[in-house]
Design a protein around this nucleic acid. Structure first.
Length: 223
DNA sequence: AAATGGTTCAACCGCGGTTGC
DNA sequence: GGCAACCGCGGTTGAACCATT
């Protein structure tokens, strides 16, 4: 491998130029996937997981190298506020960047820049919807939220906006939000919408900007 | 110049989900 | 349904690099 580590022998088995060449040639001929077969067929002394990781994080032509731009950092910060440590989801919205890159950059640069201490998987919005709602029109889900007498109007509006945007235009994010509630399914789902971040409402416009390219007209039509 | 401690980031690990038999 | 193989994710590790003393 070239770059900061040179071509020395390392205990932690960094990839060599020759290993990279073999892996790239294998992918060129056979395509991605079936990573465990690579070692058997190519003679690489690497497990499938290692091959996949090397391709995804380094060799793939879609991987962007070099420093993160201010725009990329800004996008990552916003998405992290919205999604928490869901690095693959965040990376999926930062063109050319991998989850490992985003995670490393967050841990080594952005968390310091923002003065954030390491936290466990905290998310901004947690929509606890019943699994029975999956697959139905979200506009019907929102009507259930409206049944919650104790639900703060402002919070409900924010949550509605978030889930609706995600549902129609950003399936991965929507699935994530749905998944978050799967752990805590509650039959009384009319009152099961929660906010985890106290100050989210005051920052929601900022947080949602990455998705602002999408029209919200259909939301209001359905309410 | 050498020692030391902090930083960076590629690579690894463990786990859970998915798929195929 | 049970099992094994595979895949992908988030957290962690550790070696090289860098800054400071």
């Amino acid at each position: 491998m070239e770059g900061r580590h040179g071509n020395h022998e390392y205990k932690k088995a960094l990839w060599t130029v020759e290993e990279d060449r073999i892996l790239m040639e294998y992918v060129r001929v056979h395509g991605k996937g079936k990573w465990n077969r690579i070692a058997k067929m190519s003679g690489l002394k690497r497990c499938g997981k290692s091959c996949r990781l090397r391709w995804v994080n380094y060799l793939s032509p879609s991987v962007k190298r070099g420093d993160f731009s201010e725009d990329e950092e800004d996008l990552i910060i916003r998405l992290h506020n919205l999604l928490g440590n869901r690095w693959s989801l965040i990376a999926g919205r930062v063109p050319g960047r991998t989850d490992n890159q985003v995670k490393n950059h967050w841990n080594t640069h952005l968390s310091k820049k923002l003065g954030i201490k390491k936290e466990k998987n905290k998310v901004g919005v947690n929509a606890r919807l019943s699994s029975r709602d999956l697959g139905v029109d979200n506009r019907n889900i929102f009507s259930k939220f409206n049944c919650n007498e104790t639900f703060n109007d402002n919070v409900r509006e924010i949550a509605t906006e978030t889930v609706t945007k995600c549902d129609s235009h950003d399936d991965d994010v929507f699935k994530f939000i749905i998944d978050r509630q799967e752990d805590t399914i509650d039959d009384n789902y009319a009152s099961s919408f929660q906010l985890f971040s106290d100050d989210l409402s005051s920052h929601i416009a900022y947080l949602m900007e990455p998705l602002d390219a999408y029209s919200l007209d259909f939301v209001w039509d359905g309410l």
